[in-house]
Write a protein that binds this DNA or RNA. Structure first.
Length: 254
DNA sequence: ATGGCTTGCGCTGCAAGA
């Protein structure tokens, strides 16, 4: 069973990449963020033709999340029922007994801004909701764009980024609070090469210079962590024409 | 050096991303 997450930065633009990537990679469940499509424009037929069932919730211009699955999706829930939010940032479903939560965590814009406060409140609410979800789901995976680099190892230049949004202490504390619920960062369950990232700025030739951050993650409940046999970031799609600025993260379960 | 790209909206530059 392979689970993956990918912030596609517009599914309208990136659908060919998603289809190409799925053709080359045997992924069972793919969580997408920043689809930027209202539900009436979601490419259901194209994805079903590729062998995937879909659950999605979107809005105009911003946000939007989806789960694509080779297996049936049960008990689909949109958003965090504990947090009133106009932004479409969360969708959940049970697939082969696994509760899959796909999340696009707010960016936060700048430390101290209104959007930063919203990010921290949003993460508090996510924490409280998932604490309860874990009581009813032994097998729970939280996949998505967290917009948090949990550790200096996840930052190309920790000195330059120190204290700024995506790496600030309060954001990292929120990430640790999720981990303290019992989750494991799938990527760190395994020995990994250094300087592996999941996002690079479009500007400054950041990708070619590997000026990236690891901000897309797969957190696994203890039972799923015990089943996990590997976790990799596939940076290949970042090299394609007109790429997303993020690249997929994949976890394999036995 | 706070810019640098990319997208959506919609037709003109601007907001937002990270």
């Amino acid at each position: 069973m392979k689970l993956a997450t990918w912030n596609v930065n517009s599914l309208k633009v990136r659908l060919p990449h998603v289809l190409q990537w799925l053709e080359a990679n045997p992924i069972d469940v793919l969580c997408l963020q920043e689809t930027k499509l209202t539900d009436d424009k979601f490419p259901v037929a194209e994805l079903e033709a590729a062998g995937y069932q879909v659950a999605f919730t979107g809005q105009k211009t911003y946000n939007g999340v989806a789960i694509l699955s080779r297996f049936p999706l049960h008990d689909v829930v949109k958003n965090n029922p504990r947090f009133a939010d106009e932004s479409q940032r969360v969708i959940s479903a049970t697939i082969e007994g696994i509760r899959v939560v796909c999340a696009y965590i707010p960016n936060g814009q700048a430390v101290g801004s209104d959007k930063y406060q919203y990010k921290l409140r949003w993460l508090d609410a996510l924490h409280d909701w998932l604490a309860d979800e874990l009581k009813s789901h032994d097998q729970l995976a939280l996949l998505g764009d967290y917009n948090i680099a949990p550790d200096d190892r996840d930052v190309h230049d920790p000195a330059a980024w120190a204290g700024s949004v995506l790496v600030s202490d309060p954001e990292r504390a929120e990430f640790r609070r999720l981990v303290d619920l019992g989750f494991k960062d799938a990527f760190r369950l395994f020995e990994q090469p250094e300087k592996i990232y999941s996002w690079w700025d479009y500007r400054m030739m950041a990708f070619r210079r590997n000026m990236g951050l690891r901000i897309d993650h797969i957190l696994l409940s203890p039972m799923l962590a015990a089943r996990c046999t590997g976790c990799v970031i596939d940076k290949l799609p970042r090299k394609w024409e007109q790429p997303s600025d993020h690249t997929p993260v994949i976890a394999e379960l036995a």
